[in-house]
């Protein structure tokens, strides 16, 4: 079980780290109402997963995982650009970035 990918650091330890980071991201998404912070939490979750992919890539000695991280980064960049544009729009229209404002869409 204790597979070391570095000297003295096992995969298991990295898995713990990524799970913790991911859960912190989830916590941010769930407990905050500020759209920007939620957005940043999402980025945090993405990054933790990227880290995990690199760990597994290292474990299997395969480039594929790192290539995938590369693509996921570019998708994240695109997503942030569009998402921030939407946030800017939302702020201009409502003078607020509280995501509960979005419940107005329901009416």
């Amino acid at each position: 079980m204790d597979i070391e990918i570095l000297n003295g650091v096992s995969v298991q330890q990295y898995l713990w780290l990524t799970v913790i980071l991911f859960s912190i991201g989830v916590l941010g998404v769930l407990s905050r109402k500020n759209a920007i912070i939620i957005f940043m939490s999402v980025e945090l979750m993405l990054n933790s997963v990227n880290l995990l992919l690199v760990v597994f890539s290292k474990m299997h000695a395969d480039t594929l995982g790192q290539v995938f991280v590369f693509f996921s980064m570019s998708v994240a960049a695109a997503e942030v650009a569009v998402g921030l544009a939407i946030l800017v729009m939302m702020y201009r229209n409502t003078k607020s970035i509280n995501i509960d404002i979005l419940s107005k869409i329901k009416e």
Binding site: I5, L27, K58, A61
Partner: peptide, 29 residues
């Protein structure tokens, strides 16, 4: 919610045991 998710992820880490190390090549990154 976050705690529950973390618990479950940890639990799934615990049960997934078959991690196999390949012969490491240093230059893949």
């Amino acid at each position: 919610g976050a705690g529950a998710l973390m618990l479950l992820l940890v639990a799934s880490l615990k049960v997934s045991g078959n991690l196999v190390q390949s012969p490491t090549k240093g230059d893949i990154g």
